[in-house]
Design a protein around this nucleic acid. Structure first.
Lengths: 124, 124
DNA sequence: GTCATGTGTAATAATTTTCTTACAGATGAA
DNA sequence: TTCATCTGTAAGAAAATTATTACACATGAC
């Protein structure tokens, strides 16, 4: 099942590009193309620490690019597997514009700041 | 002219996703869909400082998503215009894998560190 | 029991990005 | 000249990410 059959949910694009914005995470995706793998093994394969890999997997999962599932082998031993979630996302100015429009309002400055309303110092 | 007719140069994907990884930059692209604009005006439109906008435009340009050109109006007044560079990029596990394979070798630890070669402390 | 293998998380350090502020220089109009 | 408009960049602060290290806990084999 695809992570997107038609158009990508505009609100998800930021999560996706953020997830793809790190070399290690690109490698994680590349590694999972060969089939699912469990965390510890993947960490060894990529030569990165397990806690760090967790961080990366978490980001990828939130973006919907991978899925993790804890399996309690018949005996009771727990192993967490991660697998690639097939995706085919198109990046075009239009898609980006939609994502931009869907962005959550940015938090405004908590306090208007004491003295203001005089010429900006500069930088504008 | 498109920034990519067929497949995206694998080595450029990291630049593209990094460029799209920031809300303000998504907005810049959205804003430029309406036509080219010059830096100062764009800064006012987006309500961000000009130096900061420069930073973002630089990243977008390096990714090939926008193009800037300094125009010396007939009189000699300089204005720098930026315009959107049409793009249509597909993100798939395969494309990501190619990008991962094209990644520059990561710099290894300059010094092997004094004492080593004993059991890793933990975290692996 | 002890060792090797797993999972999961917290605290903190290191690094990168992002953002602000302050410059310097040019043109045209009043 | 002075003001308003541009471009371009540098230095440092602020914030967000990334990475390390150290825990706690469980199972199976020896």
């Amino acid at each position: 099942m695809h992570a997107d059959g038609g158009a990508l949910d505009p609100a998800r694009l930021p999560l996706v590009v953020a997830a793809l914005d790190h070399p290690q995470r690109l490698k994680v995706i590349a590694a999972l193309r060969g089939g699912r793998q469990y965390v510890s093994a993947l960490a060894r394969e990529l030569k990165i620490s397990r806690p760090l890999l967790y961080l990366h997997l978490e980001r990828l999962e939130k973006a919907g690019l991978v899925t993790g599932s804890l399996e309690l082998g018949g005996d009771g031993k727990a192993v967490k597997w991660f697998e690639l979630e097939p995706f085919d996302i198109r990046l075009t100015p239009e898609v980006v514009a939609e994502a931009a429009a869907a962005l959550p309002a940015q938090r405004r400055p908590a306090l208007p700041r004491p003295a203001d309303e005089h010429g900006e110092t500069d930088g504008w």
